[in-house]
Amino acid sequence: MIAYIVRRILYAIPILIGVNILTFVLFFVVNSPDDMARMNLGMKRVTPEAIENWKAERGYDKPLLFNSASQGVGQVTDTIFFQKSLKLFQFDFGTSDSDRDIGYDISQRMWPSLAIAVPVLLIGLLVNITYALLIAFFRATYIDIWSVVLCVVMMSISGLFYIIGGQYLVSKLLHLMPISGYDTGFAAVKFLILPVLIGVVGGIGSGTRWYRTLFLEEINRDYVRTARAKGLSEGIVLFRHVLKNAMIPILTGVVVVLPLLFMGSLITESFFGIPGLGSYTIDAINRQDFAIVRAMVFLGSVLYIIGLLLTDISYTLVDPRVRLS
């Protein structure tokens, strides 16, 4: 087991290096730091000095890969690639283009993100599984057919509509909850209910439909017939046999996104004004703050790889047939 985890972590290193090189090329080679400076300072009438100044302030004035002006190790370390890209491996995200410590910002803003993402995930899971089980119980009846139609309709509606519609209905017409904002501690709850609710509702369509397929796939298996031949009731067959097997793909599908919950949801957070990592990213994109975008890309890849690892480990926990070797 430990050997397996070690091997997976070793395997992750080349992938992260790949991500790192990719972002480096994207952010520094396709467009030079000069271009970025000009963009940031406004397009017209920028003096070369201003550009140099801007670059120097943010450490973009170094050569990309090789610094012939430096001595010894400095020839390699005193470069943009080393300072800006490789340092990410130490989770040293540096400072944003607007001069804030990115690492600190991330550590502050991940909590609001989690406060929304975790309830959405858990409640969504509960709702979708319950609904899907219900449909599976009534399979091949009108309840099944119309539920599937309902699911398809729900998943055909843009997520934006759920948010805008929900805000309009709940906050503006009914005045039940504040439209947006955030608070610290327990006071935050009243700001969280609506986004969580909308997140859950928005996910019902695709989630339920997917779980229904999984359940129906299991229901047609031989062991279910065996269970029925024992004289078990349909409810026990569904709960003890079908659900337990279908939980394997469901759980592993959930585990892979667990780490990514830290990243938050871009849209929800920005609509509801929640100071999480999602709105952080959006703000950064809108402000064209590349240091933050770069940091988030790297963070996202790390979390994704952790997710893959957790998925494999969770298989061994829920599926007795899988043993890691």
């Binding site: 031949a229 004289g231 097997n245 599926d319």
Partner: peptide, 21 residues
């Protein structure tokens, strides 16, 4: 009656048992 007065076994023992129990 199923599993009571009459019981059944199937052709494929590989797939007829629940793999996770």
């Amino acid at each position: 009656e199923r599993g009571g007065r009459m019981a059944m076994i199937f052709q494929e023992p590989m797939t007829s048992l629940n793999p996770v129990l």
